[in-house]
Nucleic acid binder design. Structure first.
Lengths: 230, 230
DNA sequence: TTACTATTGTCACAAACTGAGACAATAAGA
DNA sequence: TCTTATTGTCTCAGTTTGTGACAATAGTAA
């Protein structure tokens, strides 16, 4: 990452949501030899679109290409500025700031995005600076650097606000899913239980679902239909 | 604006909404000797919070201090980069880029905000680079530089989406207003007519208004109550 | 003083929507 | 064949919303 390759002072952070075992989860990086946890983020190349930079970073970490991505806020408080954190990350990777990395110790304004992906499609991959990239339930996050906890909270709040308006919950599931699975996603996002009949009626009335064949799970009860988003 | 005073590559643009004569209007700058029209914007000082920079810029142009302000999107496409526009603006003001203004010809990522203000509270003031700062109805804007037309459209869309959820329409009116005036604001923002009785019932049920004395306009009919937001 | 007009606050009724439960129809195991 | 758990659908009541009606003004005109 030499100085000339990226726009200085500008970063992005991404809150990558997945759904598994009944929990809403997000991808968190743990940096090599530091015990520091952070959202996966990155920088923008000099001639690159901001949105493309985020998609590139997500692709590098998840291998996915068609990602549901939404920009939700830009964090620009001066109090975000804490060069010691970045210095620690660089040193843990054997990098001296003087070797062309001084710009990473500057103040950054960060554009935050959230992504919704199908948990099963991802094998998280660490990037060059990181030790591990793992899923954590949103209610059991480790302590995060800088204002990243705040970014996560705002991401969840925005996702909740957009849930009914944009009907995006399906992006957290495989192509085909049952009505019960979809309801579980909604409940995990909203943090509340929903009524089965009311939920089903609302989803069907919205006319965004296509009904497919039944799914036989081997359980001793009526088999549910599979659905997909139109 | 010497190089050292501001963060490079980062700008903000503000869409300042006002309401007058039945129209939703926004503040547009016309730059001196160029015929170029643009949203009022600015830069962030090295140790300044992003949000504070925007409030500072709005204060310089409107004299207002308590401004309803909302960040809505950050525009970061590389296609925004057009140094000729900025070069024209500088030259029209007799400034040579070589005099420490080269950074203004670089690529910028712009964080966009919208503000809602009471039209009557404002006497728009031009800033150092500008010739005039005037209100334009949103449906009769001049051609704007770069992607500013796109920014305006996204601002209006966001305002519409937030209107019911945040009940912010009152920020475009004086402290006290009639129900009919509030309805006119909503209609101007949404671009549609609303039913008088339904609108009044919804507003009263929301329990966000305080009812004050009646307002006698001199017209030959029942006088309406004045309201203010709680 | 007495009509007359335009607008306002409120009510009434129907239509649409939502919460909550009931129930028959399975799918598999006992 | 009986039992159990879950699903798709229906019903009914309560709430909200669309729509019009109507009396109560505040001025103007006769």
């Amino acid at each position: 990452m030499p100085q000339t390759a990226y726009l200085p002072h500008i970063a992005y952070d991404s809150v990558v949501f997945g759904f598994s075992e009944g929990d809403l989860k997000i991808l968190i990086m743990e940096y090599h030899n530091t015990g520091l946890f952070a959202l996966p983020g990155g920088f923008v190349r000099l001639q690159e679109n901001l949105n493309d930079a985020v998609l590139r970073g997500l692709n590098e970490r998840t291998g996915l290409t068609n990602i549901y991505l939404e920009q939700f806020y830009t964090f620009g408080d001066f109090s975000r500025f804490d060069p010691e954190v970045m210095r620690t990350l660089l040193e843990a990777n054997g990098i001296l700031p003087a070797d062309g990395y001084e710009w990473m110790l500057d103040r950054f304004i960060s554009v935050a995005y959230y992504a919704l992906i199908n948990y099963e499609d991802v094998r998280p991959r660490p990037d060059a600076l990181s030790d591990s990239c793992e899923w954590y339930p949103v209610n059991e996050l480790p302590e995060l650097i800088l204002d990243h906890q705040h970014i996560v909270e705002k991401a969840i709040q925005t996702l909740r606000d957009n849930l009914d308006r944009k009907l995006v919950g399906g992006n957290l599931l495989p192509k085909k899913f049952t009505m019960n699975e979809l309801q579980n996603v909604y409940e995990a996002i909203l943090g509340t239980k929903l009524r089965r009949t009311t939920f089903q009626r609302k989803m069907l009335a919205a006319e965004v679902l296509t009904r497919h064949e039944k799914h036989f799970s081997g359980k001793a009860h009526m088999a549910p239909y599979l659905y997909s988003f139109k």
